[in-house]
Design a protein around this nucleic acid. Structure first.
Lengths: 127, 127
DNA sequence: GGAAGTACCCACTTTGAAGTAAGGTACTGG
DNA sequence: CCAGTACCTTACTTCAAAGTGGGTACTTCC
């Protein structure tokens, strides 16, 4: 149980050393979620995506796109033109991931008002 | 667009000031995801849950359970017995959230091996 | 009688995620 | 000819998340 993960072992997010933990953290990361949701609609250029995903810095956008590309979720198409043009889109695997997080995102938007009410109740109950 | 969020505004995870961002971050937080998935199966006592979710510290478990309770996802039932017995379960809202993240969790477990392969390819392509 | 289980809380420290700022290149529009 | 756009990278800093270790109060087990 406390043994580190080995190839062939069953993937289990409850096991501390399982690599699926890391994958899950990439997908559910602060900017990862929003980027996947954005790219699900359509492909974006870098600064276009930056404008779409409110509040993301250039650094974090570049960094997050890189980890998503490395994991095989995002496809990076850099055309050698001037000014540089780079298009980001989802791979098939990325589409699958994005479908999951987009569902979660929509659910969150629908239920946020309820959550806000719950917090108020919780807070006033202990004052 | 840069205006802070006001009651009645439409929830949009792409807006930097939207409270849905915060809700999403609670649900997708490192331990939040795993706790929701665990409680989806059945209710747990504190230390039972701690043993189930590998690697979580007491502090983080208590803290995460509190934020999930405040948001109205988790129900805390503390029986006034000795030794203390506290049962954690999901509310209806929590069940909805857990359904979403459990789907994501299962998908991740299924696809992690593919991701591992993708990373290898990516890394050897630039050496 | 000492250890271990139960469900925490608190203070302290460490880590790592994220923000800020600047640099670089090659162009285009005013 | 200077500003601005585009797509980053690097260095520095900040701050919140997380880990560590302690304490509590009471009980059962050996």
């Amino acid at each position: 149980m406390e043994v580190s993960w080995q190839p062939g072992m069953k993937m289990d997010v409850n096991a501390p050393m399982c690599p699926s933990r890391g994958v899950l953290e990439h997908v559910t990361s602060r900017w990862g979620v929003l980027i996947l949701i954005a790219l699900k609609e359509r492909s974006y250029r870098f600064s276009e995506l930056r404008r779409h995903v409110g509040g993301v810095s250039e650094k974090m956008l570049a960094q997050t796109l890189q980890t998503l590309e490395r994991d095989g979720f995002v496809l990076r198409d850099a055309q050698p033109v001037i000014p540089p043009r780079v298009d980001y889109s989802l791979t098939e695997l990325g589409e699958e991931a994005a479908a999951q997080v987009a569902a979660l995102g929509r659910w969150t938007e629908r239920r946020t008002e309820q959550v806000l009410k719950n917090r108020e109740k919780y807070d006033e109950a202990r004052t």
